[in-house]
Simulated assay, not measured.
Amino acid sequence: MKKDRLWTKEFVIVSFINFLLTLMFFLLMVTIASYAKTEFHASTSSAGLVSSIFIIGALIGRLLTGRAISHIGTKKTLWIGLGFFAVHITLLLVNRLLQGIAVGIASTATGTIIAQILPASRKGEGIGYYSLSAILATAIGPFLGMILLRLEDGFTWIFTMNVVFSLICLMFYAMAKINIPLPSVSVKEEAKGSVLSKFIEPKALPISFIALLIGFSYSGVLSFLSFYAEEMNLSSASSYFFLVYAIVIILSRPFSGKLMDARGANIVTYPSLVLFALGMLLFSQASTSWMLLLSAALIGVGFGNFNSIAQTVAVKVTAPHRFGLATSTYYILYDLGLGIGPYLLGFIVPYTGYRTIFIGMVAFILFSIPLYHWLHGKRDRELIRAA
């Protein structure tokens, strides 16, 4: 039996655009606070606000985009997001907020387009490959940012590179032939739903809530790795943490996606959450380089694969004309977990230390397993078949 085609020109172009968007996000995330302090003599707290306000913008962008996709389609929505991203504003805080909105719009649109153009029989595999574009960007972006900061005109290079990448995104998107008709939903049908359902997809909420908890659990690693590694005298090994993390995801993602398409989400999700918990436990007790890097591999296989499977589930349980809302719902809750995690955990760290925080995250992940079973797992095949 002939397989449905996966690697189309449009799939590659949209994945490449997502790679550049994520790369620009992480490139600026690790450098913008330093820029605010150096160029504007901002306080540490103000510099932190410049960095974190991006997340607020992204949440606003995602909230608006799901509804916009239903009305004007994914193609026009992505044009708006990419065009918005290419515009630079003089005021730094306003710029970061608007940039966050732009990335929220554009990345939600790219995720929705991928869900729309993938064949149903290979959706898990396809979204798995697509999400690798973001994984690669999360490894390359910070690395590139730290290198450019060492240059004499580092900030000029960073902002110039963002402008160039934005224009490349627009140019490549112009080459794509994406013909996705607007959803054929009558005004009467749309009016039936609540006000909330016009911005959020209720069917995607259960798996998205689990993603919020798992994103919250991972956020501590993302934000406090450098401080924790320095405290443990593992700074040298920590520079390879995200490289190992990215490699194991790249190697495992193709298999996990195919497995989900063949046998449902549970066969991947339960082991992924257990491995994530084991990785976090090892991370919390790391005293040598090999322990830290092994924890990176376990977290990569666990958290990395859960993330793509959960995103696929959010789409699969939803009717095609609401794919945009499902994608934005997933990312709103996932980003919220990543965004509030460092803020809340930052208050606790001075009283408990990093090890206690990460042990607490192990309990959080383990709690998510029965919660996933109750919210989605026990009806996984039934829900996906009914969609």
Rank of each mutant, 00 (worst) to 15 (best):
G66A: 00
G66K: 07
G66W: 06
G66I: 08
G66V: 02
G66M: 10
R67E: 08
I69R: 00
I69Y: 06
H71S: 15
H71P: 04
G73W: 03
G73T: 13
T74G: 14
T74L: 05
T74R: 09
K76N: 04
K76Q: 15
T77A: 14
W79M: 07
W79D: 12
L82K: 06
G83W: 05
F84V: 05
A86L: 09
A86Q: 09
A86C: 13
A86P: 10
H88N: 14
H88I: 14
I89F: 12
T90E: 14
T90M: 13
T90F: 13
L91F: 15
L92G: 06
L92W: 05
L92C: 15
L92A: 12
L93G: 10
V94Q: 11
N95L: 10
R96I: 15
R96T: 12
R96N: 09
L98P: 13
Q99Y: 15
G100F: 00
G100M: 01
V103F: 09
G104F: 04
G104C: 04
G104Y: 00
I105G: 00
A106I: 11
S107G: 15
S107Q: 06
A109Q: 10
A109M: 07
T112F: 09
T112N: 05
T112P: 09
T112G: 02
I113E: 00
I113S: 02
I114V: 14
I114F: 01
A115H: 08
A115W: 00
Q116A: 05
L118F: 06
P119C: 10
S121K: 12
S121D: 13
R122K: 14
K123A: 03
K123F: 11
K123N: 03
K123S: 03
K123G: 00
G124C: 01
G124I: 01
E125A: 12
E125H: 07
E125P: 14
G126R: 02
I127M: 11
G128D: 01
Y129R: 04
Y129F: 13
Y130K: 04
Y130E: 07
S133P: 04
A134P: 11
A134I: 06
I135F: 07
L136S: 12
L136I: 14
T138E: 11
T138H: 10
T138A: 15
T138Y: 10
A139P: 06
I140T: 03
